[in-house]
Computed example of a mutant assay.
Amino acid sequence: MRFMILVKATKDSEAGVMPSEELIAAMGAFNEALVKAGVMQAGEGLHPSSKGARVQFSGKNRTVVDGPFAETKELVAGYWIWECASLQEAIDWVKRCPNPMLTDSDIEIRQVYTAEDFGEAFTPELREQEDRLRAEIEAQQAKKG
């Protein structure tokens, strides 16, 4: 099962306060353990929402709203993509994580949908398209690597 692990933002992360050398080293050691266990597939920190934008959809209309965004507790400051056998395994890994923030913080765990989750609506043609796109992404990443 794939999971997206969402590190929730804090006032400090939204203010652009960077982590200490000690926290960077602790997170590096945690990430190394994830990689050695075959769990981590991706992970990055995100700039504050003041450097971002949202696109709001209403019918055919699209409205761009520039950051920052008011509800800090609803924002994401970073993420991982993990492959785990279960939600419990993902929880166990998160519990081992150093606190990623300078203050109290939250990490949310969400399972990623698979093709099978969509049932009959995910036709063979759509499956073929997804497989082709995933292969193309992998080829692009290989060229950059």
Rank of each mutant, 00 (worst) to 15 (best):
Q41N: 14
A37K: 02
G28K: 01
V35W: 15
E22C: 05
A26Y: 11
A53C: 14
Q41Y: 11
G28W: 00
A26R: 06
L23V: 01
A42E: 12
K36Y: 05
L46Y: 05
S50R: 08
S20L: 08
A15I: 04
A33D: 14
A33H: 12
F30H: 03
L34T: 02
A25C: 00
L46N: 01
A37D: 11
E21A: 11
V39L: 05
E32W: 10
G38Y: 02
A29P: 00
H47F: 06
A53L: 14
P19N: 05
P19A: 04
G16L: 03
S20W: 02
V35F: 04
V17Q: 03
G16Y: 05
P19L: 07
M27V: 15
E32M: 10
P19F: 05
S13L: 14
E44F: 07
M40C: 07
N31M: 14
S13A: 13
G52N: 03
N31T: 04
E32L: 06
L34N: 12
E44I: 15
Q41G: 14
G16E: 03
E22L: 04
F30W: 14
H47M: 12
A25K: 15
A26E: 10
N31K: 12
A53W: 13
V39E: 01
E14V: 07
E14A: 07
R54I: 10
V35I: 15
G38V: 01
Q41E: 15
G16N: 00
G38F: 10
A37R: 03
M18Y: 10
Q41K: 13
E32N: 12
G38K: 01
V35H: 07
L23Y: 03
A29H: 13
M27L: 08
S50N: 15
E22A: 08
E44K: 13
E14P: 08
L34S: 09
V39Q: 00
V35L: 08
G52D: 02
R54N: 13
Q41T: 07
S13F: 10
P19W: 05
S13K: 09
A37C: 02
G45M: 04
S20T: 12
V17C: 01
A53M: 14
I24D: 04
E14R: 11
S20R: 00
A26M: 01
